[in-house]
C-alpha cells in the first residue's frame, strides 16, 4: 500500500513535466492557432493587425509562464477550456465524444487480440518446429512488418467490392437510415465496426501471438515442467495447463502497456475508415495548433501511459508473488 502511494506521488512530477513540455513545444511550433486565417485559399486572408488583435483577445500576448499558470490552475479544477478551432466546443466535450468511439473500437480489438492471439501463440509453441508452425510464424512476422496503414488499405480494396461488399467502409452508422428497432441499430453499428477492428487486430495480433509463443516455450523448458512430466501428468495437461499458466502471465502484464493505446486511438484506422475517434482528434488538433485540446489530450494519454506502467508493475509484482506461492 505504501508502495502504491509512493508511486502515485512520483507520478505527479512526471505529469507536471509532461504538461510543461507540451506547453512549451506547442508554443514553439511555427504557425500558431490563428495562422489558418492567413491561408488565402479559404477566403479573404486576414491582415496582420487583425491577427494581432485576435491574439490579444485570446491572451496569446501574455508572457508564456502566465499562460501556463492560467492553464494549470483551471486544469486542476478539471476545466480544460474551449477548443480554439471554429467549433469552439468545450474541450472535455470533444474528447468525451471521441473517446467513446475509440474506446469501443480499441476495446473490441483488445478482446479479440487476446482471444485469438493467445491460442495462436500456444498452438505455435506446442507445435514448435513443425512445418505448420513455421508457416504460421512466417505469416505473423509478415503481419508484424506491415504498417497498419498498408493493412487497412489492403482490407479496403478487398472488401469494397465483390462478395464482401455488405461490409460498410466508413462511419459508424448507415446515414439516413430510418430510426429502427434498437436491435437492428446495434447490428448496423456492429457491421460498421468489422473492418476497422479487423484492421487493428491484424496489425496487433502478431505481437501478442509471438509473445505468447515465446512465453509458453520458455515455460516448457522450466525444470518444474520436467518435474510435472516426471510425475506422470498427461502431456496435454502439462502443455495447456501448467505451461500456459505461467507462459501467459507476462501477457496479462502487457495489458498495462496497452492502456495508452486504448486511450490514444489509432490515427491510421480512424482515417482510413472515417471514424471520429481520439487518434483523429489528436492529429487534427496538432495540425490546427488547437492548444487547449492538445494539452488536454496529451495529459490524458500521458496519464494513461503512466497508469499503464503502474498497472504493469503491480501485475508483475502480484504475479511474481503468485509464482512464489505456487
Amino acid at each position: 500500500m505504501r508502495f502504491l502511494l509512493r508511486r502515485l506521488l512520483f507520478g505527479l512530477p512526471t505529469l507536471l513535466g509532461i504538461t510543461l513540455l507540451t506547453f512549451a513545444l506547442s508554443r514553439l511550433a511555427p504557425g500558431g492557432p490563428l495562422s489558418d486565417l492567413l491561408d488565402p485559399e479559404q477566403g479573404r486572408a486576414v491582415t496582420k493587425e487583425q491577427l494581432a488583435a485576435t491574439e490579444k483577445l485570446l491572451g496569446f500576448d501574455r508572457p508564456l509562464h502566465e499562460q501556463y499558470g492560467a492553464w494549470l490552475s483551471s486544469a486542476l479544477r478539471f476545466d480544460f477550456g474551449r477548443s480554439l478551432t471554429s467549433d469552439r466546443r468545450p474541450v472535455a466535450e470533444k474528447i468525451a465524444a471521441a473517446a467513446a468511439v475509440s474506446l469501443e473500437l480499441q476495446g473490441a480489438a483488445v478482446v479479440l487480440l487476446y482471444g485469438l492471439g493467445i491460442p495462436l501463440g500456444v498452438f505455435a509453441a506446442a507445435r514448435a518446429g513443425t512445418r505448420r508452425e513455421r508457416c504460421l510464424a512466417a505469416l505473423l512476422f509478415v503481419l508484424q512488418a506491415m504498417p497498419t496503414v498498408v493493412i487497412g488499405a489492403l482490407l479496403l480494396i478487398l472488401f469494397a467490392r465483390g462478395p464482401f461488399a455488405w461490409l460498410p467502409l466508413a462511419g459508424l452508422e448507415t446515414p439516413g437510415a430510418e430510426p429502427a428497432a434498437p436491435l437492428a441499430r446495434a447490428l448496423d453499428h456492429a457491421r460498421h465496426l468489422v473492418l476497422p477492428v479487423a484492421c487493428l487486430v491484424l496489425s496487433g495480433i502478431s505481437g501478442i501471438a509471438l509473445y505468447a509463443r515465446a512465453g509458453v516455450l520458455e515455460a516448457l523448458r522450466q525444470p518444474w515442467i520436467r518435474a510435472a512430466r516426471a510425475r506422470g501428468l498427461p502431456e496435454w495437461r502439462v502443455r495447456y495447463v501448467h505451461a500456459l499458466k505461467s507462459g501467459i502471465l507476462p501477457l496479462v502484464a502487457l495489458l498495462g502497456g496497452l492502456l495508452p493505446w486504448l486511450v490514444g486511438g489509432s490515427v491510421a484506422v480512424e482515417t482510413l475508415f472515417s471514424l471520429p475517434g481520439l487518434g483523429r482528434l489528436t492529429i487534427d488538433s496538432i495540425a490546427a495548433r488547437d492548444y487547449p485540446t492538445v494539452m488536454a489530450l496529451t495529459l490524458l494519454v500521458a496519464a494513461a501511459t503512466w497508469l499503464g506502467f503502474l498497472l504493469a508493475d503491480l501485475l508483475h509484482a502480484a504475479l511474481r508473488r503468485g509464482e512464489v506461492d505456487a
Binding site: G257, L258, V269, A287
Partner: peptide, 17 residues
C-alpha cells in the same frame, strides 16, 4: 518489447494524417 512496438505503432498510426 511491447513498449517499443507501441511506439512504432503510435508513430505509424500518427502518420497518416
Amino acid at each position: 518489447r511491447p513498449h517499443r512496438a507501441g511506439v512504432a505503432a503510435a508513430l505509424a498510426a500518427a502518420l497518416l494524417l
